[in-house]
Simulated scan of single mutants.
Amino acid sequence: MTTFDDRENAFENKFARDEEFQFKVTARRNKLVGLWAAEKMGLTPEEADAYAKSVVQADFEEAGDEDVIRKLLGDITSAGVETDDAAIRAALDAKLVEARRQFIEEA
């Protein structure tokens, strides 16, 4: 039975590592897209950093990306910048690729 137990533990550990990696990548993506939005809104570097952190926090409101998209869309349009849902989704996709690349380069 030890072989099966070892194998089960290995799969559980891999699953935990994969989930942690995905969480970190998503948080990094949200920070990057927050910085992207802050630049569009013309925020100062200090304001941009604080705004990026608020975008990361917004992702904890509900499962999926809709909470982040809703926040970004509302904040950007409130700042008087023209944007739409598709532009924000495209930015999320681009920043996800960038976030993964950054983690891979750090390893």
Rank of each mutant, 00 (worst) to 15 (best):
A87S: 09
R70Y: 10
P45N: 05
F15T: 07
E98C: 04
A10V: 07
E39W: 01
E61M: 07
T26A: 11
A38P: 14
A48Q: 06
R100H: 09
T77G: 00
K95F: 03
N9A: 10
T83K: 01
V56W: 04
S54F: 03
K40W: 02
G34H: 04
G80N: 03
K14D: 06
A48R: 13
L73A: 07
E19V: 10
F60A: 15
R101M: 10
L43C: 01
A63G: 08
D65P: 08
A52P: 04
K31A: 06
R28I: 15
A63T: 11
K31N: 15
L35W: 12
E98R: 01
K24S: 08
W36R: 01
T26Q: 14
E20A: 03
D93P: 12
G64Y: 04
N9T: 05
A91G: 00
Y51C: 12
D65Y: 12
T44D: 01
E46H: 02
T3A: 13
D5N: 00
M41D: 02
T83P: 07
R100F: 02
D75K: 03
K71N: 03
L96N: 09
Q102K: 04
E82I: 06
A86N: 10
E61C: 06
D59F: 09
E47L: 10
N9C: 01
K40V: 02
A87R: 06
L72P: 03
Q102N: 08
F60T: 15
A16W: 01
Q22G: 09
A10Y: 02
E61G: 07
G80R: 04
E8I: 05
D65Q: 11
R7N: 03
I88C: 01
K31E: 15
R17H: 05
E12H: 06
A48F: 04
K14T: 12
I88H: 01
M1H: 14
E47R: 13
K53E: 15
I104K: 12
E19Q: 10
F4A: 13
F11E: 12
L43I: 11
Q102M: 13
F11V: 15
V68H: 03
Q57I: 11
V68Y: 01
W36G: 05
